[in-house]
């Protein structure tokens, strides 16, 4: 028999596989903070403009010791949670109506598009007139900021519920109300939960604006006061608190998604 070249086939399908490395973000955080601390210790960063991470930690620790930290977080969480719930409920209701009823959609869509881009901070003086300088104006600021993106996400979530499921429900004689609660609501959950991610971030962003008016406790008020007092370490500490809060909310939402969207 003549000699025939025999080669093992080489693998060439590697890479391009989506995936995550669990340790990578932690390492990146650690490296960034370590570099920052080192630069501060070596006085490459002027203390006036950028405090060292250790100073930020000290500032937060001092705040924790005198009990103000918990008070600030509790005050802000109350505003964030109540504003977010109010804005979300109203937003989901309107978004559903726009997704289901042609008239609501025709009227609602242009109005929402017109009002969505208004910076809520610009309306703050108006809120003081309407709601005073107590809790209502703060909650309203957050609720309004949450409302519009929730309307849009709820509307498109309803729009994305497969039509064939609705026709199926109709073919079995379910009433409109039953279709809304048994088909559209659960079917829109993925979109609504995705919208929650955005709206919860907005609530966190707006708490600073909301606490500009008449608040002496709250993370936003704390950050503002630190800014006014040029206490840069506390300012950054407050910002770190806000982003930790953001991470916490995001983790909670991930858990909620795992439970509610088990079927995906």
């Amino acid at each position: 028999m003549p000699e025939v070249a025999k080669n093992t086939v080489a693998f060439r399908g590697g890479g391009f596989v989506p995936g995550t490395r669990r340790w990578a973000p932690w390492l990146a955080f650690l490296v960034i903070i370590a570099c920052w601390e080192t630069a501060s210790q070596l006085r490459w960063l002027p203390a006036l403009f950028m405090p060292a991470p250790s100073e930020v930690v000290q500032a937060l620790h001092a705040l924790l010791v005198d009990g103000k930290l918990v008070a600030h977080i509790v005050a802000s969480l109350k505003r964030i949670v109540s504003g977010w719930i109010l804005g979300s409920l109203a937003g989901i209701t309107l978004g559903f109506m726009m997704g289901i009823f042609v008239l609501a959609r025709s009227v609602g869509l242009p109005i929402v598009s017109a009002l969505f881009p208004i910076p809520k901070i610009a309306l703050l003086p108006l809120f003081i007139l309407w709601f005073g300088i107590g809790e209502p104006s703060k909650v309203a600021t957050i609720a309004l900021g949450v409302f519009f993106p929730t309307v849009v996400s709820a509307f498109s979530a309803v729009d994305n519920v497969p039509r064939n499921l609705i026709r199926m429900a109709q073919s079995f004689g379910l009433s409109t109300r039953m279709i809304v609660f048994k088909v559209i609501l659960p079917g829109a959950m993925p979109g609504i939960l995705a919208g929650f991610r955005i709206s919860s971030s907005i609530a966190l962003i707006l708490v600073v604006a909301a606490e500009m008016i008449g608040a002496d406790t709250g993370i936003g008020a704390f950050v503002l006061a630190a800014g006014n007092l040029m206490q840069i370490d506390q300012l950054i500490g407050g910002v770190v608190l806000l982003s930790l809060l953001g991470l916490g909310v995001s983790a909670l939402l991930s858990i909620a998604e795992k439970i509610v969207l088990r079927w995906r």
């Binding site: 003086p125 003081i128 300088i133 500009m212 008016i213 503002l224």
Partner: peptide
């Protein structure tokens, strides 16, 4: 009870 409201117009409004 200190109410910080950021600006003099806001103080007058309050």
């Amino acid at each position: 009870q200190m109410k910080p409201v950021q600006s003099i117009p806001n103080m007058m409004a309050a």
